[in-house]
Every structure is written in structure tokens, then in C-alpha cells.
């Protein structure tokens, strides 16, 4: 029983990270109807920026905030410069462009920072809590995810920009007629996604160590979480990410060897989607013919 609870809690901590990245994917999907394959590599690059800042002697949370700001601007720049030209191109062209971005970021990080593993400091001490049920680090990671979610919720619910972004995502034409600058909203969406991804990268780096390929596995779980939750639903992304984290941990501990981890993710996706094709919280798209 004790071990089970322990596995569930550490699964929740891992799931919180998947949830953050899944949230970033959902942000971009809602804004531009595009699955961003470069999301993980963008997060990895942000984490390297944070690592550089910490190594330069900045306090952790100072570096964290600067990284978020830089990532936000970087995300907006990517939308403006790289994604905008293929906005009206066939969907496959846009997919190829994000794959190209993935390669560019991965290669650049390897070139600038080399492919060796780097230690990344954790802001939370690693102390066991409640009779070793969980660690303070797990609690910290989960708390950060919840804070991000709360901030996003407040942003979309209570600010004018948030309302404008929701309008732009839901119906670009009508939003434009209401005087909303849709293009700018899309750029802000990409910026937010990049910043959320940076949070995920910084949270996961102490556990995985930092290297250019750090995020590839995390990205797959984030995809899984986003699909299970429904790729249009931010709440779904968080719950989906947590489900994936817990399932991965439990199945890895009790059922089969961890070498089939991705296969578990695949089976999980197919099972959930067979019964709910739009994910647990996604909305079915109704089309007018």
C-alpha cells in the first residue's frame, strides 16, 4: 500500500511536467490549429538559457523569470518569422516547418552547448515527507504546475487580452470584425506556449539532466496527455498529463518492464480514443455542410 501511494505521488510529479508541456501544445493548437512538434526542443533550449543564467551567478528564481520572459519573446518571434509564412499553406507544409524547427533547435543546442549531460540545480530541496510517501521536490513541481494553470486561467478569464485571444481562437473572422488584432493574438499564444514549455523544461531538467535530447520522451508523454485530455482543452491537457504520469509509473512498477514504456503510452491513447475520439474533455467539432 505504501509503495503504491509512493508510486502514485511520484507519478503525479512526473505527470505535472507532462501536463505543463501538454498545456503548451494545447495553447498552440487552439491558436493556430497546428501540432507543434518543436515544442519539446523549444523548452529544451529555454532550459539551456536558464542554465546559462544560473551558471552566471543569478539566483534561481531570478533566472527562472528572465528565462520565461526571453522564451515568451522568442515564441512570439518564431510565430512571426517562421510560422506566419505557412499560415495559409497546406497543413502538411506547416507540419514540416515545425519538424524543421525541431531539427534546428536540437542541432543548435548541440552546437552551442555540446551533447554532454549537464547537471541542473533544483530549486526545491529533496527531503522525504509524510514517512517517505513523497518528496518536497515532487510537491514543488506539482505546486508550480498548479500555479501556472491558475495564472493561465485568470489570464483567459479576467483580462481583456485573454478574452480577445479566446475570441481569435474560436472564430478568427468575427474576432477580426470586432477589431481584435488576430495575428497579434496568435503571436501571444505562441509566446505563452514557449513560456509554459520553459517551465516544464526547467522542472524536468534536475531529474533528467540537461542535454539536447532531453525532451523527446517528455514530448511524447505530453502528446499522449494532450490527446487523452482532448487537444482543445487546457484542463483536459493537465488531467491527461497527470493520468499519463501515474499510469506510466504504476504500469512500469507492477505490470511490465520499463523498456515498453512507450508501448504503454500507445495502448493508453488508442484505448481512450476508441471510446472518446475527441479525448476526455475535448469538444467534438460540428461542421456546417
Amino acid at each position: 500500500m505504501h509503495q503504491l501511494l509512493q508510486q502514485i505521488f511520484s507519478g503525479l510529479a512526473a505527470g505535472a511536467i507532462y501536463a505543463s508541456l501538454a498545456l503548451a501544445l494545447v495553447m498552440i493548437y487552439r491558436a493556430t490549429n497546428l501540432v507543434n512538434f518543436a515544442q519539446g526542443e523549444m523548452a529544451m533550449f529555454s532550459t539551456y538559457i536558464a542554465w546559462t543564467l544560473v551558471n552566471a551567478g543569478l539566483p534561481f528564481w531570478g533566472a527562472f523569470l528572465i528565462t520565461l520572459a526571453v522564451s515568451f519573446l522568442g515564441g512570439m518571434a518564431i510565430e512571426r518569422i517562421v510560422i506566419r509564412p505557412v499560415e495559409n499553406a497546406p497543413i502538411l507544409a506547416a507540419v514540416v516547418v515545425t519538424i524543421g524547427l525541431l531539427l534546428i533547435f536540437n542541432s543548435l543546442a548541440g552546437w552551442i552547448y555540446s551533447y554532454t549531460l549537464q547537471e541542473f540545480p533544483s530549486p526545491f530541496p529533496d527531503r522525504p515527507l509524510f514517512g517517505a510517501l513523497m518528496t518536497t521536490r515532487d510537491i514543488g513541481v506539482i505546486a508550480v504546475t498548479l500555479v501556472v494553470l491558475a495564472v493561465l486561467f485568470c489570464f483567459f478569464r479576467f483580462t481583456t487580452t485573454g478574452l480577445a485571444m479566446r475570441a481569435a481562437a474560436q472564430n478568427p473572422e468575427s474576432a477580426r470584425l470586432c477589431g481584435i488584432h488576430v495575428g497579434r493574438m496568435l503571436a501571444i499564444g505562441w509566446g505563452l506556449a514557449a513560456a509554459i514549455g520553459a517551465v516544464a523544461g526547467i522542472m524536468v531538467a534536475p531529474a533528467l539532466f540537461l542535454d539536447p535530447n532531453m525532451m523527446s520522451g517528455v514530448l511524447l508523454y505530453a502528446f499522449t496527455g494532450a490527446l487523452i485530455g482532448g487537444i482543445t482543452s487546457p484542463v483536459g491537457a493537465v488531467i491527461g498529463g497527470l493520468i499519463v504520469g501515474v499510469t506510466e509509473n504504476l504500469v512500469g512498477t507492477y505490470l511490465i518492464a520499463s523498456q515498453l514504456k512507450f508501448t504503454v503510452a500507445l495502448i493508453l491513447i488508442i484505448l481512450v480514443l476508441l471510446f472518446r475520439p475527441n479525448g476526455l474533455f475535448g469538444t467534438a467539432i460540428v461542421r456546417r455542410v
Binding site: 501540432v35 511524447l220 502528446f223 490527446l227 500507445l266 480514443l273
Partner: peptide, 25 residues
């Protein structure tokens, strides 16, 4: 047949990632 657009893309992506693991297993 039940999946559309991004869902199908990502399910097949998961399959591509799972394949090397299955081959090793």
C-alpha cells in the same frame, strides 16, 4: 477511422516511437 487530423497524426507518431521498443522486446 475514428481519429481525425491531429489525433491520427499523434497516434501514428506514438506507434513509430513504440516500434523500436517492441522490436527489442
Amino acid at each position: 477511422l475514428r481519429f481525425e487530423g491531429p489525433y491520427l497524426a499523434l497516434v501514428t507518431l506514438a506507434m513509430a516511437v513504440a516500434m523500436p521498443q517492441l522490436l527489442k522486446y
